[in-house]
């Protein structure tokens, strides 16, 4: 018997406060509008705060959101030993089959966090302008290796003295042409572009 195809898995990582959960809050309704069957896994250090925020949001059936408590450095459970997240993803697929997509949010980490290809099919790294216009120049593994780099909080650039055009250009330069999208999750700006990238690269129904 042919094994049923599993849901696509997309990771979302990035520094603390860059807007990973805010991006999720934009992606969930966008995928709901497309009729995509979705579940979410959040990773926090020792709390369930991000999961509870999504469960309370009214955007998604609360049981479709599962929290993983990393208990240590957030990158360990998305890269070195992703067992907890693999278990959570399989559990969600069993409960809500047929599931199209699982979004996995990493706990906030530094610029070095990356996702294991054993865990996700595609991953997004979220940075934001208020973290500093020099982030791309620092060439952290997250910035360099992510399938898609999101620069969030575009609207804050003039208030924090960041030249957004220069920051974006540097991001494109260090990533050698791999995609970079500038978003504002508060207003939903460019969220459709993020959705399009996910659809094209792992959902395949573009």
């Amino acid at each position: 018997m042919t094994e049923p195809l599993s849901a696509a898995r997309v990771g979302i990582g990035g520094p603390v406060g860059s807007g990973k959960t805010a991006l999720l809050e934009c992606l969930i309704p966008a995928f709901a509008d497309r009729g995509t069957s979705l579940a979410v896994i959040t990773n926090d250090l020792v709390t369930r705060e991000d999961a509870e925020r999504l469960q309370r949001s009214g955007l998604i059936e609360p049981s479709r959101v599962v929290a993983v408590e990393a208990g240590a450095c957030p990158h360990t459970v998305i890269r070195e030993d992703p067992t907890l997240n693999l278990d959570a993803a399989e559990r969600l697929e069993m409960l809500f089959r047929p599931l199209d997509l699982v979004l996995l949010e990493s706990g906030g980490d530094n610029l070095a966090s990356t996702f294991s290809a054993e865990l996700v099919d595609y991953w997004i790294f979220v940075i934001d302008v208020s973290g500093g216009g020099d982030i791309p120049r620092k060439r952290g593994p997250g910035v360099l290796q992510a399938d898609l780099l999101v620069i969030n909080k575009a609207d804050l650039a003039p208030h924090v003295g960041v030249d957004l055009a220069a920051m974006t250009k540097e991001a494109r330069d260090v990533r050698h042409g791999r995609p970079v999208i500038v978003t504002n999750c508060r207003t939903g700006e460019a969220i459709d572009d993020v959705v399009d990238h996910i659809v094209r690269n792992v959902l395949f129904d573009d």
């Binding site: 696509a8 294991s116 290809a117 054993e118 099919d121 595609y122 690269n201 792992v202 395949f204």
Partner: peptide, 10 residues
């Protein structure tokens, strides 16, 4: 080599 580990890709 990194992409060989993937299960879904375009």
């Amino acid at each position: 080599r990194r992409d060989m580990l993937r299960k879904r890709l375009r």
